[in-house]
């Protein structure tokens, strides 16, 4: 069985204050799939994501990465397999320079000096951030930080890429660049996002979470056509599927001609 498969079975997580964040969540994501987990604020997306590499341990249920069930003993291997890019790059970048930050993961994998250098250079080049290697992370722009945060994970050569809100806080150009970059990756990809246009661009499959429960799991196109379902889950269609904001999509051509 491939290492690239992510399977959740009857996952439940209850926080110490009694909040039930996710309830009976089950899904299977197969090799090479690009899947979005969407939902309103507080739906349980980030909580679910943190279970995929053992940052949170489920109250009940099980996670399997390929053949390996997630447990304390398998954590190091699973954390190498599942690369996690967090929502706020400032939480992820903590070393004095970009180079050292990207080298942090490979050094923890026990790699030697030259191999670490090679991995760092390759990862930074891959995200177009090779020129930033000597800079301190806190001096970078939001888009640059995001790219470097992705490089820190790529340097560990993961099979599965998990990203929490990858396009949040980016300007339109940086967002478009990031989407193009993510499209090139051949990994199994799992995203959470409120940017539904990005989801439409990158993900063939979408899972909707609402109050900790999976409300829908299927092809992205079909899910985004179901306005009733989206409204019930406090979501809206992506902007690109909505009509022209001026004439509500009825006289698109005329509206543009007039403009």
């Amino acid at each position: 069985m491939s290492h690239h498969i992510v399977e959740a079975k009857n996952l439940q997580h209850v926080y110490p204050d009694g909040t039930v964040a996710i309830k009976d969540v089950s899904f299977c994501i197969t090799h090479g799939e690009s899947v979005a987990i969407i939902g309103a604020n507080g739906a349980g997306k980030s909580t679910l994501l943190q279970h995929l590499n053992g940052c949170l341990i489920a109250t009940s249920g099980q996670i399997r990465i390929g053949d390996t069930p997630l447990s304390k003993g398998t954590l190091p291997d699973i954390r190498r397999t599942v690369g996690m890019v967090f929502q706020y790059p400032d939480d992820q970048l903590f070393m004095p320079t970009v180079f050292e930050d990207v080298a942090f993961g490979p050094l923890n994998l026990g790699l030697s000096g030259d191999e670490v250098d090679q991995r760092v250079v390759e990862a930074l080049e891959r995200v177009g951030a090779g020129h930033l290697r000597t800079k301190p992370p806190y001096n970078l722009s939001g888009g640059e930080k995001k790219r470097v945060a992705i490089a820190t994970v790529l340097a560990m050569a993961p099979d599965i890429l998990v990203m929490d809100e990858p396009t949040s806080g980016l300007d339109p150009f940086a967002r478009r660049q990031l989407i193009s970059l993510l499209r090139e990756f051949q990994h199994t990809k799992i995203f959470t996002s409120h940017d539904l246009d990005m989801v439409l661009d990158l993900c063939q499959r979408t899972i909707i979470l609402h109050e900790g429960v999976i409300m829908a799991d299927g092809p992205t196109d079909e899910i985004f056509q179901n306005e009733e379902l989206l409204a019930a889950c406090r979501l809206e269609k992506p902007f690109s599927m909505q009509g022209c904001p001026v004439c509500n999509g009825k006289t698109n051509t005329k509206c543009h001609d007039a403009g």
């Binding site: 943190q50 590499n53 939480d91 080298a103 942090f104 923890n108 000096g113 560990m156």
Partner: peptide, 23 residues
């Protein structure tokens, strides 16, 4: 925030040992 940073470190294989790049 310190907890989030710690989680990010764990996610990148941190097991209680720091490695200086210069050998």
């Amino acid at each position: 925030k310190a907890e989030r940073i710690h989680i990010a470190m764990l996610a990148r294989g941190f097991v209680g040992r720091f490695h200086a790049h210069r050998q």
